[in-house]
Structures are given as structure tokens and as C-alpha cells.
Design a binder for these strands. Structure first.
Lengths: 333, 333
DNA sequence: AATGGGCATGAATACGTATGTAATAGAGTG
DNA sequence: CACTCTATTACATACGTATTCATGCCCATT
């Protein structure tokens, strides 16, 4: 049905290996032979089978990205990763993070990809162990996994937490609430650590009633904000573990008839593009996410090419305060 | 290094084909033999190579999704497609739409995927031809391609255009502008057809100066809105080719100090989740996008399994008006 | 007890490419 | 003219699995 290198060889009157060599630019093939082969290949619209090639070379030139597709950040990092990989000749297979045992991860273990990009690994996940045990290269993006020590690219999440808290502190806020993230994610834990540290340094208490724990998404922000605002003593400022949570909180505030920042201040962390839009105008802490994603992809390819030292490489990207319109000075009650 | 079926066979004291049969549930293998093989496989943590399997069976159980990763809808449809494919045992490789010649599409042509999901094909693209010529099954999602007649899943985009226009018409608007989409995309063209049809039926002129053509994204909406509002006779209501464009327009309006809908009405098409948020509250026309995506994935798998008739299957999904807060009755000038 | 049938398994091979090794032809050198 | 060396190509094989066919075995039937 579809042409193989054998068909090309027959048409060009040479052997199959010669076709293989000619099309891959092996200098040991005569110009004349090369021409005949190219002609035959075009005539048959021959495309080398990546499958056969992979089986022979033991390299697929394909990388898996494991992502939590419900995470609002993945649309930001996925294109960056895709393009960085494509630029270096690698393809991408996408795998959603599974809640269950991990039986769905076989594509990662059966050598159908050369490496793995773990973008959203829960800390207790067994997957990094499995990959490590099989010697499959991996890079963790924006989360560091539990015990396994692998290449990783992260933002300075502790500093991001500090920065977010300080934006409110320097505006004079003391009645502060926190829409926190899951304890399973290092990103969330690190940010919370920074937040609590900055608050403690400023002698500002964070009452446990004013901490609502949720996930990274918009819904968590909406629900958490409603919970905080229904407290007997609602906070006058809310730190959100992510921009999506913060935008959810903005929406809840709008729905509750609260003015931001007059009635309540809100800050986020991430600086997704939406945060800069006039209708959000969210004060937040910027992470260079697309840049980090690109970095991770290139790191993985470098690892696959074997041009990295044996020790795990860790890249930590700096963060930056992005004060905008959703926080302001605390007014006296 | 990594265990193969031969290693398992050796350890279990059987031949390689028996291992293959046993692990795939072939009933011709004794329970005792099966047990020994399972034991050996576990001991070696054997995972069958999908590569070897694919080469032998000529089926990869993998599907490619070709998407324009800059299109703001893909985060909505990608998870739906991924999950639908996963539920039926198919993996996904992601390919960004290329502007250039199409040399980057070789993964689609070299039999490393069983089928292709075209989510954002420009009309003149040569890719559908190529795929058709090679007999690679494909399904087009939300856009119908030029000449090639393939399986497709679309929304009733003409009706969506009509519906959007009618929301403004029935509110009494006559001074209407249009933020149109690219003429290369059938989605865009169909919607515009419906819009113009509804306006013509209501004897409402659409001046060409009030039509700004752009892409589907937020930036187009922002830029287009500014252009419309700077006209000598700016429209009092703007129909946007997509929700992202509409939200861009909302942001431009906010930035320009215009009140929506008091000063200008805005309607979109798509009903992305964000449109329902209080900070947007966008009047729009709902497309069942995740449902369509799931439908397309299942259609492709059905096609791959050969359980569909030879003629192309076309699914057209209905649309629904979602009147919210960004349009209101026209006030006399 | 001989034979036929069914069942479990092994041997051989195919899938498409890449690569190591052998072979052939041509050219250059003595 | 013979020999060697090199350039070019063919041959054989490997990669990991699935499948077709052949083989051997046991049991039932006559």
C-alpha cells in the first residue's frame, strides 16, 4: 500500500540499505545514485517510517509531556514546550496526569518516548521512581518531586510567596486572608511558605480561619472567596496561591457586590496574560512561565543528547512583582 | 538493558511467541504457563514495546491532533479529545499547525499515527489532500476543509452568526459593527455569512468601514475595537467573530472608558467558560465545544475500527443563544 | 491397541529501517 | 600487467512483537 525503502530501492535499481544511506545524506553514496534514489522516492512519495527507524536506532525522537489538563497554566506552557521541542527535531505526545494507580503510563515505560517532561507531578507520585528505575530521562517543570533527584526547572516559588505578601504588607494591610493550594504540590507549599514567612517577619498574624485550602483553578478562588467574605471578621486583603484563584476571587467579589480594591484587595501569583487585561488588572507576581517551559524542553533534549553532566541540573528562575490595580492601602475600619 | 519478551520467555522457560500470547490473553495458553509467564514478567518489570507491536500489527493506537496552539479554543477541546481517546485506548500526539510548506507534517504521513484530528485547518491547506491520498483517516473538527470530503464535526456556524446578529437586532440596534475573522477559516466565513444574512433580513446595513477583519484572538478584538471606536460614526453595537475577540473588545472598551452595554453593546460567539464569569458577563452564542471534541475523537476511533460506512460522516451540532449582560437596547442618539 | 482429533507450544517469518561486514569495480602504482 | 587501495554498493542481520504454520502430545474413540 504505502511505499517502503525497499520499493524505492527496486525502482532505483539499488539495494535497500543504499536507499537508507542516500536519503540520510551518507557521503558514501555517489551523486548519480543519490539522484536516482531521490527521483524514485519522489515518484513513490516515499516517507521513511519513523517506526522502523525507531526500532532500529532505539531512539524515537519523541518526548512525553505529562500534564494536569485541568491546570489553568498548561495552555501557557504547552505551546512553548511544543515549539522548543519541534525546533530541535523532537515530537510530543501528551499524557494527562492520572489520579489512579498509574496503569495509564505505559507509553512512558515501553520506550515509545525518549524522555519525559513532568509538568504537574503530585509529590507522592510513583511515576518519577518508575522512570528513574528504568533510566528514562525526565525533567520536572515548576514542581520538584519527592525523593527522586532529577533535572528540574522551577521558579523561585518561596520568593514569589514573599513578594505577594509584601505587596499587601507595604500597603499597610494587616487583616489578611489566604486562598491556599493543595499540600500535594510543591509549588503550592513553597509559595505558602514564603507568604507565611513574610507575614511573620512583619508581625502580622494569619488566622487559620482565614486560610481556605483548595486547588489551583478558578472555581477554588470563587468558592474560597465566598467563604472568606462570609466570616464574621472577613479579611481586608486576600493572597491567592495562583492567578486563576485570584481571578475566581475577583469574580466572587464582583458577584457579591464588593469593590476591588476599595472593599477588599486581591493579589495573585503567576501573571498569566489575562491578569494584565483591563477587566482584571490583577496585582500579581510574575513567573517567566513560557521561558521556563522552553528551558525545560531544551534541558530535556540536552539530557537526551548526553551533553549534560551526570548530576541533576536545577534551574531556578527569578520572579517579579507586578503591582496593578487590585490592591491598595488598607483603610481604617 | 530493558527486558524484552525474549527475556521473559527465557526466564519462564517458554518461547517468545508464547509470552506474546499469554500476556495478551490468548485462550490457547495453559493457566499454569500463563502463571509462570506473568511471574517472570513481573520479576523483570516487563512492559511490551509499543514500537515492536506497532511494527508488527501496522497499528499504532495513536492519533495526531493538529491544532493552532494560538487559537484560544484549544485549551477547551484538547482535554476533551485526550480523554475521549484515552477512554478508547488511543494515545495522542500533538502537532502545531505550520504556516509553511508542510514539511513538518511527516509524523502524520509516515504511519506513526493511525489517524489525524484536524482541528484548525486553513481552507487552502494541502494537508487534507495528502492524508486523503495516503488513505490516512481524518476527522475535521469545527472547520470543513476545501475540496476534500472527509468526516467532520462542526457547529452550525451560519446559525450561530444569525443568532448573534439577532440578539442585537431584537434589542433595536441598527448601528452595528463587525469584528470579523480570517477568510481562510470556514468557521469564520460561515459565521459571517449568518451575520450578514440576519442583518439583511432586518434591512440593517453593514457598512464596510464598520467591518474590521482580524484573527480569532484577544489581540484582534482589542485592536479592532479601538479601530471601530475611532470612526467618525462608531457603531453602537459590535458583533465579534469569537468570544476571545469579544473579550478583547471588552477590554478595549474598558480601557477607552466606555461603558458596556450603556455606551456600546458587544456580543460574541463560542461561549467559552470565561464568558460566563461575572467580570465578563458576555452575551454570546454557545457552541457545545467539549461535546463536539469528544464526538470528533469518537468518530475518528470508529473510523479506525472500520465500523463506519464508506461515505464521510458529518455531524452538525446545534448552537444556542446565551444572552447575558453585554448587550442592551439601543438608545436614541 | 491403533488412529484421529484437539490442544498447547515452538519454529519461522514479517513488519521497515539502520548498520557492520563483505564484495566488487575502478583507479592508481610499481 | 599484477597488485593494492579506495570508493561504492550489496548482503546479512538486528531491533521487539505478532502471526502463520508445523510439531508433538495426550486423550478419546473404535
Amino acid at each position: 500500500m504505502v511505499a517502503t525503502s525497499r520499493d524505492v530501492a527496486r525502482l532505483a535499481g539499488v539495494s535497500q540499505p543504499t536507499v537508507s544511506r542516500a536519503l540520510r545524506g551518507d557521503p558514501r553514496v555517489t551523486a548519480e545514485t543519490r539522484r536516482r534514489i531521490a527521483e524514485a522516492a519522489t515518484a513513490l512519495s516515499y516517507v521513511p517510517s519513523q517506526m522502523g527507524r525507531s526500532l532500529s536506532t532505539q531512539a524515537t525522537h519523541r518526548v512525553a509531556m505529562v500534564a494536569d489538563l485541568a491546570n489553568p497554566l498548561y495552555p501557557l506552557i504547552l505551546p512553548a514546550i511544543h515549539d522548543a521541542l519541534a525546533a530541535r527535531g523532537y515530537g510530543m505526545v501528551l499524557l494527562a496526569e492520572r489520579e489512579e494507580d498509574g496503569s495509564g503510563y505505559s507509553p512512558l515505560l515501553d520506550r515509545s518516548v525518549d524522555g519525559v517532561l513532568l509538568t504537574t507531578t503530585r509529590r507522592e507520585s510513583a511515576l518519577p521512581f518508575e522512570l528513574h528505575g528504568r533510566g528514562i530521562p525526565m525533567v520536572m517543570l515548576n514542581r520538584v518531586g519527592g525523593m527522586v533527584d532529577s533535572d528540574s526547572v522551577v521558579a523561585d516559588n518561596v520568593e514569589a510567596g514573599r513578594t505577594a505578601a509584601r505587596m499587601l504588607i507595604s500597603a499597610g494591610h494587616r487583616e489578611i486572608g489566604l486562598l491556599a493550594g493543595p499540600v500535594e504540590a510543591s509549588t503550592s507549599v513553597d509559595r505558602e511558605t514564603g507568604i507565611r514567612e513574610a507575614l511573620a517577619d512583619a508581625d502580622i498574624p494569619l488566622r487559620s480561619a482565614r486560610v481556605v485550602r483548595g486547588w489551583f483553578g478558578h472555581g477554588s478562588g470563587d468558592a474560597g472567596m465566598r467563604k472568606l467574605m462570609s466570616l464574621e471578621q472577613p479579611p481586608r486583603a486576600v493572597i491567592c496561591i495562583s492567578d486563576s484563584v485570584a481571578i475566581g476571587a475577583l469574580n466572587a467579589a464582583r458577584d457579591l457586590g464588593l469593590r476591588v480594591p476599595a472593599d477588599v484587595s486581591i493579589v495573585g501569583i503567576d501573571d498569566v496574560p489575562m491578569s494584565g487585561w483591563p477587566i482584571c488588572n490583577l496585582s500579581t507576581v510574575a513567573l517567566p512561565l513560557p521561558h521556563m517551559a522552553e528551558d525545560a524542553a531544551n534541558l530535556l533534549v540536552d539530557r537526551l543528547l548526553g551533553i549534560l553532566p551526570d548530576e541533576p541540573v536545577r534551574h531556578i528562575h527569578p520572579v517579579q512583582a507586578m503591582p496593578r490595580g487590585t490592591h491598595s492601602s488598607s483603610t481604617q475600619i
